[in-house]
């Protein structure tokens, strides 16, 4: 139930004269006393008290002026209550009172000033902007209906704009030209009641900016321009050319862009725009030559930076403006032209060679300058001299393309031409000597010795060649000598390779590596590089160390030292085992050092004079001969079992071994080395070491030794590596004395003698040719005494480590020398002996009784070579390689002659002999030599 609008009042007026505006009555008042009441907005809620009711009669009066814009409708809620009980006798009734609108509000603009812009030359009716206004009177009522109108325009004149009366949109009504009026100001009126005369109006301002477009072509201030400049000079502001343009200043529509239509083909000039003045600045950027051209006639044009507006673009016509530059003549000094000249010569060109003639020019005449004196200016290597009158240039020195002053094959120097007379001018020219390279340098190997890890042994080899292409990389690296069975070279890149061992071992390898350049020029073995010096030196050391190492690793374990075959010591050859693979050498487990003097000393032994001190303990290696290798044991079953076997023969044969070891590793391979055995052998070692890695200090000493191949020079360098921490040498303390000595030698340390209360060590010297000047190894037949010191006869009770080696070349193997009677006194250890030449051993025989001799011989199984030295059967296949090893540990009653051992007392001699990879046809009876 509801009540429709029932009453109305007018805003802004005193409506009280119309009271009561309404009256309410209940039919209950006939039976009950009733009190009427009202509530709601305008009564008991703000605005309060506008309406009141008479409680008895129910008449409702309005008491105040109302504002429709504040409260457009009042809702009066009417009640009829029992006057005594106050109970509502009727449901409440709502009486709505509407406030009638009057036009009491003007239009209000959204902005005080409206601004907009439009490009000049725009089309008619283009929308410029929209004016917005509102009216607070009753919506959709005439009192709030606004009409817009342009009241005025500034600048005046024809109306440029038109206003939409109802929407307030301002449109373009005429052609705009910014260059005429860049902006307009309009006064716009908004009136309600649809613009009727009784409406209320408001005014606003509209500013319209006219945007510039490039509709004007630039022009030059003058119809022609001219300037002058001296020849051979430059100018950054020779002339200013004023441009004129009606478009908006400092915009791209206004800024001029100058260009040459003709006359500047050689780019002598350029014009840049001064953006502040719109002037073109003429610059001379290349020296002008009066003798070449006295006047430059240029035609210049101008346009704007911005493109022309489409409305005028088709009207543009390029017009040229003449610009004349006069060149002034000046007196010029001589000059080299061209400023540099290139001469090509071969690197082999000799001194006094006439390179060519380089003369200065008289610029004014264009002829060769006649009044000048030539001289050489900057000439860092002083290669040139010049004829002061003719400018003829001659080589003053032998040129070297590898000189530090030669860059990219070119050497540069300066030639000066100085005028005679009081006022002197100097012209400078550059001569470039382009040197054609020749292959006059061998590649050199730059490989530092590195510690070679047993599990990943490798050495990076790099090479370089002072010659350039095509005489440099790629280099070809080659291994020479025996270790090719163990070592391979893997190419890394054009100038380096990796030397890798697949089965590295505790043995000494001497590896000789050569490198060839791209043109086949090889690093000569007789012209070792600096890098090779170190190798050579270490190679020498290796020769020194081989016997030591071998003695440590191969000694039969029968001796007292055998018990210590763990940890850091050498592991001994298992006593009396036959055919077993000898564990690789671990220092400390071999039989303790024994004096061998008693088996070496007798000077009365057959064979002649052994007492030349210089020959004592000489290990002699023949050229290319395989002396020792990483393989030390044999698979021959039953070898080394016979006590006393070959004792004397082995020793006596020592000297002859050399003669029998002409074979090389190549021959090994060709003879059919049991590679399976080798692989298995070294693999087993590797596995064992792998298991022991954590418990083993990484300070094993590893000497790598290899032998050159056939035809390689004698005494070629070897390689020696030592595994250990670079910064921590304490590991040396964990080594046994022998191995420690090895390590110290490897490290270049001064070797500490074993405890010796009697005598110092024999001097251990290593003598090489001057490594700086010439490290060429001697030709075949030359002997290099690595240890040149004559050994001193050790006194009784001393221990001597013999580290003397002699490299002996020559294809002729010297006949074996009988060994002296080893009945010596004192302790003497001869670790390895190879003899090919002069008497090799001579020690004081009056020494202690213990002798340990370890010997290895590797060589072709030429029975004839061995015959007489070793009492072994003939070998059917002469190409077979035999490795024999003997350990002789006689007691004090060793026979007096090593060459003819007295086996009657064989119980005092332990001889272990092994043959490595015997020929297939080699009888096993080799071990049965009595």
């Amino acid at each position: 139930e509801w009540i429709k609008f029932a009453a109305a009042c007018r805003e802004g007026e005193d409506n009280s004269k119309r009271n009561p505006i309404a009256k309410i009555r209940s039919d209950c008042e006939e039976k009950h006393p009733i009190t009427y009441s009202i509530s709601g907005v305008g009564i008991d809620r703000a605005p309060y008290g506008i309406f009141v009711v008479n409680p008895r009669t129910g008449e409702i009066n309005i008491t105040s002026i109302v504002d429709r814009e504040v409260t457009p409708v009042f809702v009066i809620r009417c009640f009829a209550k029992h006057s005594v009980t106050g109970i509502d006798l009727e449901p409440p009734l709502e009486l709505r009172v509407r406030v009638l609108d009057i036009n009491d509000n003007p239009p209000i603009f959204a902005q005080t000033v409206f601004t907009g812009s439009i490009e000049e030359s725009s089309m008619d009716n283009t929308l410029v902007m929209k004016i917005i206004a509102s009216d607070a009177d009753e919506p959709n009522h005439l009192n709030s209906k606004i009409a817009f109108k342009i009241e005025s325009q500034e600048p005046s004149g024809p109306p440029m704009f038109i206003m939409n009366k109802y929407t307030g949109e301002l449109h373009l009504a005429n052609y705009l030209d910014r260059e005429q009026h860049s902006s307009y100001t309009l006064v716009v009126k908004a009136s309600d009641r649809d613009g009727a005369a009784d409406g209320i109006s408001s005014l606003c301002s509209c500013n319209v900016k006219v945007i510039d477009v490039n509709d004007n072509f630039p022009t030059l201030a003058q119809s022609s321009f001219s300037a002058s400049i001296s020849e051979n000079s430059l100018s950054s502001d020779l002339l200013r050319i004023q441009a004129l343009d009606a478009d908006e200043e400092f915009t791209d529509n206004w800024l001029a862009e100058f260009f040459f239509l003709s006359g500047n083909e050689d780019n002598w000039f350029e014009i840049v725009t001064d953006r502040a003045t719109n002037q073109g600045i003429l610059r001379v950027i290349k020296e002008l030559n009066y003798e070449y051209l006295q006047t430059h006639s240029l035609i210049i044009g101008v346009r704007n930076v911005a493109a022309f507006h489409h409305s005028v673009a088709r009207d543009f016509q390029m017009s040229g403006t003449p610009l004349t530059i006069e060149v002034k003549n000046v007196i010029e000094p001589p000059r080299f032209h061209p400023s540099s000249v290139v001469f090509s010569v071969s690197e082999s060109t000799r001194v006094n060679y006439v390179v060519g003639t380089y003369t200065a020019i008289d610029e004014d005449t264009g002829a060769i300058a006649s009044n000048v004196v030539y001289s050489i200016g900057r000439d860092p290597a002083a290669w040139f001299r010049i004829n002061q009158n003719t400018g003829e240039i001659t080589l003053n020195k032998v040129i070297d393309r590898e000189s530090i002053y030669v860059i990219n094959g070119q050497y540069r120097a300066e030639v000066l031409a100085i005028t005679r007379g009081v006022t002197r001018y100097t012209a400078t020219g550059t001569i470039v000597l382009s040197i054609q390279d020749i292959n006059d340098n061998c590649p050199t190997i730059n490989t530092e010795l590195r510690k070679v890890c047993m599990h990943s042994p490798s050495v990076i080899i790099t090479a370089k060649d002072r010659d350039g292409d095509p005489y440099g990389p790629p280099f070809t690296f080659s291994i020479h000598g025996e270790p090719q069975t163990t070592w391979i070279i893997r190419s890394i890149n054009a100038s380096s390779a990796e030397l890798v061992s697949q089965n590295i071992d505790f043995y000494i390898y001497r590896i000789y590596i050569s490198v060839r350049d791209n043109q086949g020029r090889r690093s000569s073995s007789t012209t070792l590089s600096g890098a090779a010096i170190g190798l050579m030196f270490l190679g020498g050391l290796i020769f020194v160390l081989i016997p030591i190492l071998m003695s440590m690793s191969d000694c039969c374990g029968c001796g007292p030292g055998a018990a210590g075959g763990v940890g850091t010591g050498f592991e001994p050859v298992p006593e009396c085992t036959e055919g077993a693979i000898h564990p690789w050498g671990i220092e400390g487990a071999q039989p303790e050092d024994r004096d061998v003097s008693h088996i070496l000393a007798p000077t009365t032994a057959a064979g002649g004079d052994f007492c030349e001190p210089s020959d004592i303990y000489t290990n002699t290696y023949g050229g290319g001969g395989v002396v020792a290798s990483g393989v030390e044991e044999t698979t021959g079953v039953g070898y080394g079992t016979g006590t006393g076997y070959g004792t004397a023969g082995g020793i006596s044969g020592t000297g002859e071994v050399k003669g029998s070891i002409g074979g090389t590793i190549k021959e090994y391979r060709e003879g059919g080395v049991n590679m399976a055995f080798l692989d298995n052998y070294f693999s087993e070692k590797a596995f064992v070491y792998a298991d022991e890695d954590e418990g083993r200090p990484a300070n094993d000493c590893l000497l790598i030794y290899d032998h050159e191949g056939v035809g390689t020079p004698v005494g070629s360098v070897g390689c020696c590596s030592f595994i250990g921490e670079d910064t921590d040498e304490t590991y040396l303390d964990t080594l046994g004395p022998k191995f420690k000595t090895l390590a110290e030698i490897c490290l270049g340390k001064e070797i500490e003698p074993f405890p010796d209360v009697n005598l110092p060590w024999p001097c251990v010297n290593v003598t090489f040719p001057n490594p700086e000047s010439d490290l060429n190894l001697p030709p075949p037949g030359t002997t290099i005494v690595v240890n040149g010191c004559a050994p001193m006869p050790p006194p009784v009770g001393t221990t001597t480590v013999v580290t003397e080696n002699t490299y002996t070349s020559g294809s002729t193997i010297q006949p074996p020398r009988p060994m002296p009677d080893p009945l010596l006194h004192g302790n003497m250890t001869v670790t390895e002996t190879y003899t090919s030449g002069s008497p090799s051993l001579c020690v004081d025989p009056l020494r202690a009784s213990n002798v340990v001799v370890t010997e290895r011989v590797v060589g072709p199984a030429s029975a004839s070579d061995l015959r007489g030295m070793l009492d072994i059967p003939d070998l059917a296949d002469g190409s077979n390689v035999i490795v024999t090893e003997r350990v002789i540990a006689p007691n004090s009653r060793l026979p007096t002659s090593l060459s003819i051992p007295d086996l009657v007392d064989g119980s005092n001699v332990v001889v272990t002999e092994r043959v490595f990879r015997p020929a297939s046809g080699m009888p096993g009876s080799l071990i049965n030599i009595p």
Partner: peptide, 25 residues
């Protein structure tokens, strides 16, 4: 019933009462 009368003015400025009743919508 609960009645309400509203005073209205005609074009001549004469007032007259108009009665409204509750109506069902």
């Amino acid at each position: 019933g609960f009645h309400v009368k509203v005073k209205e003015w005609d074009e001549n400025g004469m007032a007259r009462w108009k009665t409204f009743r509750r109506q069902k919508r």
